[in-house]
Design a protein around this nucleic acid. Structure first.
Lengths: 170, 170
DNA sequence: TATTGACAGTTCTAAAATAGAACTTAAGGT
DNA sequence: ACCTTAAGTTCTATTTTAGAACTGTCAATA
């Protein structure tokens, strides 16, 4: 499957993977959330090749995740800033960081701590249900086809039948 | 940078990207959460080449995200099941799906809806602070070096200084 | 005036990863 | 004997990525 085909898939995960599903895009976005904005600063802090960095920034701008805005004339220079669409990636970034904090840290402990300005406490992100506010887990969720669904494959039909019969996820 | 180097980075995001930061791993995991478990079923539903699928399954098993368990002898056949570490990826998957639902769906609407078994309602995932329960946004969070931090680069020092001075994220 | 340095890229070649198809192995069924 | 299912492995061709060098503007310095 080509990258372009991913964008067209009838699946919100696949379409998002088309935007952030490569080795560098998420790392670039991490830097954006840490207030890195300029080409050479991205390059210095990530060690990405300049070629790839130029390509990825172009892609993120094309998807509307970053905006390229001039910060000086003569010579014209630009910086890359998160759009609202980009800022909305924050829950993805945080849930990735949190999983890494739980499952991938070594004996030195967490590289970074997060403080909530509102309550002043160091926190972890928790994913809850928008309707009842309870924490979510995979086992507590049923999936249903939505209006944008295509007919499901036989493989998926069998899998959903297993779910209906209460077959566990693990 | 090589993939192996990513795993060693003093950053929980980078280390997680080493596990799920390629085009296929997240798609394979999506199938796992939909109760797909067998090689040919993954292959049929994803259209991934058998070569890559074998490689990615091996990687996910190596990282402890999936377990390979036999479901029949003679000939020996295996299926791939999420471990607890794998189930813990659910918030990442859901936040990715949710971002796609908001920013990447076409006119047909969402491909999939989610129902919370506890409250019976269709829901969206919301990320909240573990301490005060309020919804989180990037702008409401301060970052601090944790016990596993390495000395920050000059580039990051300048960026953090900007944050301290209250420079906006966007 | 000539030189150096900062910044934001582009261009080149070599190495690595991926796509796509065919092949293998082991057993059961007809 | 032959076909099918399942889970891979092997092969070649194409695409992507790594790594380094190069380009074009302009400002500041020697």
């Amino acid at each position: 499957m080509k990258w372009d085909a991913l964008e067209e898939e009838p699946c919100s995960l696949a379409r998002t993977v088309a935007v952030i599903g490569d080795r560098w895009s998420l790392l670039i976005l991490r830097e954006c959330f840490l207030r890195i904005r300029r080409f050479d600063d991205f390059q210095a802090s990530l060690g990405i090749t300049r070629h790839l960095l130029a390509d990825r920034l172009k892609k993120l701008v094309r998807f509307g995740v970053l905006r390229k805005i001039p910060y000086q004339e003569a010579p014209k220079r630009y910086e890359y800033i998160l759009t609202q669409k980009g800022l909305d990636l924050y829950p993805i970034i945080m849930s990735i960081v949190h999983w890494g904090n739980i499952h991938m840290v070594d004996s030195r402990g967490r590289p970074m701590l997060h403080q909530h300005k509102a309550c002043q406490k160091m926190f972890d992100p928790v994913m809850v249900c928008s309707e009842c506010g309870e924490p979510l887990s995979a086992k507590a969720v049923h999936v249903h086809p939505g209006p944008g669904a295509r007919k499901s494959s036989p493989v998926h039909a069998r899998a959903q039948e297993r779910a209906r019969r209460g077959v566990a996820l693990d």
